[in-house]
Design a protein around this nucleic acid. Structure first.
Length: 240
DNA sequence: GCGACAG
DNA sequence: ATCTTGTCGC
């Protein structure tokens, strides 16, 4: 009585997609369940312009050390175009494929996009978290929904993202004088913990390590420098 | 109706 | 997102 069938995203219409988002949002859990986090993943998609082929990847790092442990890469295709507000329908299917070939799942996954800072609270992080049944956080480079007051120019300055007086996430300055990133919980995590966790993932770049490395690795797959599959990283090699 | 609009 | 050269700053 609570299970709904997930349709084929290659055939779904935008109207049906909106309906599914409204159904899925009722299942969101915005409290943190994971007591101790020792591993965190970053997920991202890469593709060549005008092509339906997508290169998906999930990298797993130690937390809070941020050392690369392993990564899962997969090549797939999508018919769903990029439409603001519906990113999950385009990227989640391929990401779930990459997720399935990971033998030991990470404690939390960081997605490149919004979590609940979305018109129907169903940004890609919430969408992925629900379907993969995992804790997930959205870390976006740009805003989609909500407002935030100006934040300080110093590193780690932050300000709340709200909509109709409801706290949805935080704008976080990861480097002094640089545009902030936008954090929001996806699923199975709280707004406050999302900010704390992402703050611990910041190293030397504007983009926190999980999605930054995921982006680098899916591009290595797309350009043929790495092969699809699950790979373990033996020693601390600093490819990036 | 108009403007905005993750990747 | 991808493409693409130079350039400014730490």
């Amino acid at each position: 009585m609570h299970n709904l069938t997930i349709p084929d995203y290659n055939k779904i219409t935008v109207t049906e997609a909106t309906s599914l988002q409204n159904n899925l949002k009722g299942r969101l859990l915005l409290t943190t369940g994971t007591a101790n986090i020792t591993t965190i993943a970053g997920a991202d998609i890469s593709h060549n312009k005008y092509e339906e082929t997508v290169y998906a990847g999930i990298v797993i790092l130690s937390y809070p050390g941020m050392a690369l442990i392993s990564y899962s890469l997969i090549q797939s295709t999508t018919k769903f175009p990029y439409i603001p507000g519906y990113l999950g329908f385009r990227e989640v299917p391929a990401l779930l494929q990459a997720w399935q070939q990971i033998p030991v799942k990470p404690n939390v996954v960081v997605l490149d996009g919004q979590g609940i800072t979305h018109p129907r609270r169903m940004g890609i992080a919430s969408h992925f978290g629900l379907l993969a049944e995992t804790a997930a956080i959205g870390c976006a480079k740009n805003m989609l929904f909500g407002e935030y007051p100006a934040l300080g120019n110093e590193k780690f300055s932050y300000s709340p993202i709200t909509k109709y007086n409801e706290l949805l996430g935080y704008a976080l300055r990861t480097k002094a004088g640089v545009k902030p990133v936008f954090i929001s919980p996806g699923h199975k995590i709280s707004v406050e913990d999302s900010l704390t966790i992402m703050t611990n993932c910041v190293k030397k770049h504007r983009i926190p390590e999980p999605t930054r490395l995921a982006h680098d690795y899916v591009n290595l797959l797309r350009t043929g420098k790495l092969s699809a599959g699950f790979h373990k990283v033996d020693i601390q090699e600093s490819l990036f």
